[in-house]
Amino acid sequence: MIRTVGLHKAFGPKTVLAGVDLAVGQGESLCVIGQSGTGKSILLKCILGLVAPDGGQVFWQDRPLDAATRPDFFRRFGMLFQGGALFDSLTVWQNVGFRLRQRMPDARARALAIEKLARVGLGPETADLMPAELSGGMAKRVGLARAIADDPEVIFFDEPTTGLDPIRARRINDLIRGIVTETGATAITITHDMDSVRAIGDRVALLQDGHIAWDGPVAGMDRAAPLAGFLGRS
């Protein structure tokens, strides 16, 4: 469904991506892991077109993702940002229903937004709060509700559990797994949290030195030699 071929990206003399080849199938949940600073988020931004790659190509349903096809792609995907990236000047429901409000009346968009908030475990009383009034865990949930508001075919999760305590991180992982399973959406998760990988992923890819150093099923990662250092095994 989504495929990258030879993605390159450098910032000055520092090469971050040195030819990344990666493919995610329909309905599959892929986790991309790697140490901090290895370019996981840059890889994600290159796929989305938020950062222009220096070389290589991204394909979506075997069509190159470019200025012509990206608007259609954006209508079919959702994204949970690392810090939530909620719009400060909008209420919770306006954040969740941001895209819905562009094509339906506010009352309908609000009702749908409240449905999505319920899906992530937040009651209707949160709908009129401002993002500044939310805790970190609640902001993640609102971000997740926004990501799924338009029933996307593909969902990207950028470090979904960063900044959360283990209990809230587990809840977010469970929510993501439930949503991905329930909707059948394709999921790409950027993380360095192995609990997230085990909870969310079907497949895992290790990004190291600008390349995909290992790519295989989550069930097999404990035996994979290239992952030994990352998993803390000797």
């Binding site: 989305l48 077109g49 938020l50 959702g78 940002f81 990236a85 909620l86 719009f87 400060d88 562009q102």
Partner: peptide, 17 residues
């Protein structure tokens, strides 16, 4: 500037805006 550093501008792009 705050919207940019907190990825809100990226979020706008991904929300087709």
């Amino acid at each position: 500037g705050t919207m940019k550093v907190t990825e809100q501008i990226d979020a706008l792009v991904t929300l087709s805006t």
